[in-house]
Design a protein around this nucleic acid. Structure first.
Length: 482
RNA sequence: GGCGCGGUGGCAGAGUGGCCAUGCAGAGGACUGCAAAUCCUUGAACGUCGGUUCGAUUCCGGCCCGCGCCUCCA
């Protein structure tokens, strides 16, 4: 069979269209994604990019020999300071605890670890050096006026960069016209933004040429992406809401500090997570955390619900979406179980089912289409399992199973044993012990043998009440939770 | 005010200039003591008004509706 070439296409926010992805170095693809600010538990809006870029990471690893994925931890920020002030908990304790919680959540959602996870506080010298380079090149200025408000600020000079605003398609003039904030007196231009700000003795701070202070919000990503990926790299990702000002300002910092470099070539942004038709965000207060959700559903179900919608579409989070995610995963696990305990065979990638699946994923990460392809393949297994006699003997179930697992794993699901999936105690399932369940089933089967169907149905009802569903098959009775 | 996104069958949600999404739910049948699962069959959609076209849900324009960014946010 002719193997169709797999060309990855990604929607690039810079061009606002799907472009063929051409890495700077096809032997080594480099990607940076904005990670969490560690001051509070991750909500599911934060979880979306974690999952989306994890799928992209898995796909890139499949397509290229080497991938370096960097996701930062922002552990110095005014929101963290505010949280510490409010609760009285020391900053170091908040950031450490929250970072750990984030890692637990990411793991529960089936996300692979990034290759590098740099912390902002461990890269202050790199940031200071980049700010110095910007000042040298006339793209930044320090406001030094001892005793005056604003002393010790360093600002990026937006008018010094003619192409400022290309990513978000805002001109400097538009920004100023639409501005709803007062212009700080230490800014030369209303659009200028902070690279470095002074810290009072009670606040986290580092010595710098401009006195004791801390970095502005955007500089860490410029400094850390450069350190680990170089001044020009392939993909920069994050949520839609980071396009402006965060990513716009990163571009300004990085390209002005390193003339001739491109910084990120492709910008990939995931859409918002909505709840009741409104964007979910911490500032609106209409959010729930990944931890809360993990009490209601297994991480795999949450992850799947996230992938059922294309990553650039807004995703309205509902209980029903979770229910649907679970039922599709049930179907797939059922197909796996039907294949039997055979060892799955790693699939040839050029078979049609896999080609169609990969074609969907490489088309700007069309996970919805990819899921449809897996459904078709699951159907094939169900059909095959319904065959009888010689035609059934001709079916190679370990190959079919191998393909299904391959596709599932590309999406980061189907990670467990089918038996564990159906019988394991998980979030949202019943907790009756297996021995107790097996005993009731035995009693029911005795009743069935004695044709005491009234008693058999009573026992079934008892099991249903415990969250157990029975399936009587030719090989006996099997059960599952849910 | 400026910039931008979206409106697909009962629900969720892809996609396409002419034929199929996919899943759930629904209807009928097979199987089953009854179920569950599976199989077979099946109905159902492209906000609105114009334009381009042999033909538009798909391209273009107006309108209506919803949402977002311009300020901290994934």
């Amino acid at each position: 069979m002719a193997r169709a070439p797999l060309t990855l296409k990604l929607h690039n926010t810079l061009t606002r269209q799907k472009d063929v992805f051409r890495p700077v170095d096809p032997k080594h693809v480099r990607m940076y994604v904005c990670g969490p600010t560690v001051y509070d538990f991750a909500h599911i809006g934060n979880a979306r990019p974690v999952i989306v870029f994890d799928v992209l990471y898995r796909l890139l690893k499949r397509l290229y020999p080497k991938v370096t994925y960097v996701r930062n931890i922002t552990d110095v920020d005014d929101k963290i300071i505010a949280a510490a002030k409010e609760s009285g908990e020391p900053i170091g304790s908040i950031t450490k605890r929250t970072e750990q919680a984030f890692h637990e959540d990411a793991k529960a959602l089936g996300a692979l670890d990034p290759d590098v996870e740099p912390r902002a506080t461990e890269h202050i010298p790199e940031m200071i050096r980049m700010i110095e380079a910007l000042i040298e090149k006339g793209h930044a200025y320090a406001y030094m006026a001892e005793g005056h408000a604003g002393d010790g600020h360093v600002l990026f000079s937006v008018p010094s960069m003619p192409t400022y605003g290309r990513l978000s398609r805002h001109s400097r003039d538009e920004l100023i016209a639409g501005a709803r904030v007062e212009v700080a007196p230490y800014k030369k231009d209303p659009a200028d933004f902070v690279l470095w700000k002074p810290s009072t003795p009670d606040l986290p701070g580092w010595d710098s040429p401009w006195g004791r202070g801390r970095p502005g919000w955007h500089i860490e990503c410029s400094a850390m992406s450069e350190k680990y990926l170089g001044s020009t790299f392939d993909i920069h990702g994050g949520g839609l809401d980071l396009i402006f000002p965060h990513h716009e300002n990163e571009i300004a910092q990085s390209t002005c500090a390193r003339p001739g470099e491109t910084f990120a070539r492709v910008w990939v942004h995931n859409g918002y997570l909505m709840v009741n038709g409104e964007k979910m965000s911490k500032s609106l207060g209409n959010f729930f955390t990944v931890r809360d959700l993990l009490q209601k559903a297994p991480g795999e179900v949450i992850r799947f619900a996230m992938l059922a919608t294309h990553y650039r579409q807004p995703l309205n989070w509902t209980d029903d979406a979770l229910k649907q995610a679970r039922s599709i995963l049930d179907r797939w696990y059922r197909a796996i179980a039907l294949c039997g305990p055979v060892a799955p065979i790693a699939p040839a990638l050029d078979v049609e089912a896999i080609q169609a699946f990969l074609a969907a994923l490489t088309d700007d990460l069309n996970t919805s289409q990819a899921i449809a392809e897996i459904n078709k393949h699951a159907d094939m297994i169900f059909h095959a399992a319904d065959l009888t006699g010689i035609t059934k003997k001709m079916v190679n179930f370990d190959t079919l199973k191998g393909r299904l697992l391959f596709m599932g794993n590309m999406l980061g699901v189907l990670r467990q044993d089918a038996d564990a999936w159906f019988k394991g105690v998980s979030a949202g399932s019943g907790t009756a012990g297996e021995a107790e369940i097996e005993a009731l089933i035995q009693k029911r089967n005795d009743a069935r043998k004695a044709k005491d169907f009234k008693e058999a149905d009573r026992l079934r009802a008892e099991l249903v009440a415990k969250g157990v569903t029975l399936e009587d098959g030719p090989k006996g009775t099997t059960w599952r939770r849910g």
